[in-house]
Amino acid sequence: MSGKTHQYAFFLGCIAPNRYPGIESAAIKTSRNLGIELLPLKGASCCPAPGAFGSIDLKVWYAMAARNLVLAEQMNTDIALICNGCYKSIWEVNHKLKHHDELRDDVNEVLKEIDMEFKGTINVRHLAEIYYDEKICGVAKLADSITTPLKGVKIAVHYGCHLLKPRKEREFEAEGVGDTENPMWMEELVAALGAEPVQYRNKMQCCGAGGGVRGYDIAHALDITNEKLINMSEVGADAITEVCPFCQLQFDRGQIEIGEKFGVEWAIPVLHYNELLGLAQGMSPQDLALDLHGISCEPFLNKLR
């Protein structure tokens, strides 16, 4: 295992590269320290957003996701990604097209117009779940890569929805990842950084943003977010971590919006797991562009020192 480099086509999605570029930068650098090489997936687009596109026409969703998959097939490389929403589109469409001939034929008819064909030759994985996979990285190796342990902070893990659910459709190569009611593997990943993961009520609840609800009824979406923030603050979380830039957006920008709309003030920093990992591997807040976050990460960073 040691010394061997695992290569993946890095599917970026939209929000990480275009709103939180620190996540993209950190993902590439921290993974390299773990023997995981993330290669550019040139010409990839939006996954496309499963809530918006799936709601309008699932067939378009299949075709658009398939185009992204074919780009990786052409590189003959499995995809790694850093967003739960992207995971739903890219993993699930890959899985569905591999198993349903009729869907695949429909999609290939469209792809033919742009000289592409979905063949079903690659796999799709979430980077967080690759980190947890003993066959590739594992918690011990992750802990070994840490140079600046994140001591003295309590972190609430938000798993998000679309990486794990629906459980019956998911198949993970990493062992111990599949539970959707009380998973603990991300807590293990957080503990490996030296931080203290905390358990809070209704941990598996949605951030509120998905399914187009953030755009359709922002107050409704924020009310869900607010409930999560109450539960997290109840157990004294110093920061929230997640593996989905859309959830990050909802928690980060959402706290400001909650202040504006509901008059409820929150200031809990929200960091993608790769940002946390970057800090623990010695990257500076500037290297991670934490200044782009809506909620200041300063109190969290100060607590670390």
Binding site: F10, C46, D287
Partner: peptide, 27 residues
């Protein structure tokens, strides 16, 4: 090609991080 497209603030930040201003996507 993006549901959430790039913008100038972000481009500047990307360059600061040593990334290219436009990500390796349709952008």
């Amino acid at each position: 090609g993006h549901g959430v497209p790039n913008n100038d603030v972000n481009r500047a930040a990307r360059v600061r991080l040593g990334l290219e201003a436009e990500p390796e996507t349709t952008a």
